[in-house]
């Protein structure tokens, strides 16, 4: 077949070579593309929530003495509700004694505490203070129930209560609300092995 040029044919560069025009066009194309990506990334960086010192960041609770001052029955096991961090700070040894029906005064449990997130892992309702009848945390929205250690015992929740890591710096409790840890999976029973039908409840 003959290689006669047809009318209006545009002569391209030889195979393997690039014209100045193509080079410039690609340069602009990639440049604009790169800038757009940078702009998009910058937008996300700009709109990334700033949570320093508040919920989502590190929240300072004070020393054990401060906590007992704010909530005296924390030493005898009542979880301390700290609303700024949306947590229950559970005094584990005193709390376990409370569930067992004993009174144990632990004014400074040191590392032996839990920072349980009050948001129910089911659909996000705020879990109320420990139920007096059962000594469980009972979500009033859909009836998920958790032990004082946040282990799930009943209801529709997919796991136990989520928790925040905390540090004790010079005796001061600091909760890192930016690092939420999943609650223990269903079936975790480290303490309080009562079943749902063994006591009265606050939530149906």
């Amino acid at each position: 077949m003959s290689q006669l040029p047809t009318y209006g044919e545009v002569h391209g560069p030889p195979i393997g070579e690039m014209t100045r025009r193509t080079f410039m066009r690609r340069l602009i194309g990639w440049g604009v593309g790169l800038l757009s990506l940078e702009f998009l990334a910058g937008t996300f960086a700009f709109t990334w929530p700033n949570v320093r010192g508040g919920l989502g960041g590190k929240v300072v609770l004070g020393s054990a003495t401060d906590i007992v001052g704010a909530s005296p029955d924390w030493a005898t096991g009542q979880p301390y509700s700290y609303q700024k961090a949306r947590i229950f700070l559970v005094n584990v040894p005193a709390g376990e004694a409370l569930v067992d029906g004993k009174t144990d005064n632990v004014p400074d449990p040191k590392k032996n505490v839990l920072a349980l997130y009050r948001k129910c892992p089911h659909l996000g309702c705020q879990i109320p203070q420990l139920c007096d009848k059962s000594h469980w945390f009972e979500c009033l929205c859909h009836g998920s129930k958790y032990t004082i250690l946040g282990e799930k015992r009943a209801g529709p929740a997919p796991r136990g209560m989520d928790r925040f890591p905390f540090t004790i710096e010079n005796g001061i409790y600091v909760v890192d609300t930016g690092k939420l840890e999943d609650g223990p999976p269903i079936g975790t029973e480290t303490f309080d092995k009562r079943t749902i039908d063994q006591m009265p409840h606050c939530a149906a």
Binding site: F44, W48, P49, V51, L55, G56, R86, T177
Partner: peptide, 9 residues
């Protein structure tokens, strides 16, 4: 969720 909420709640 964090980005949408501008925080955790």
């Amino acid at each position: 969720s964090f980005w949408l909420l501008g925080g955790i709640t």
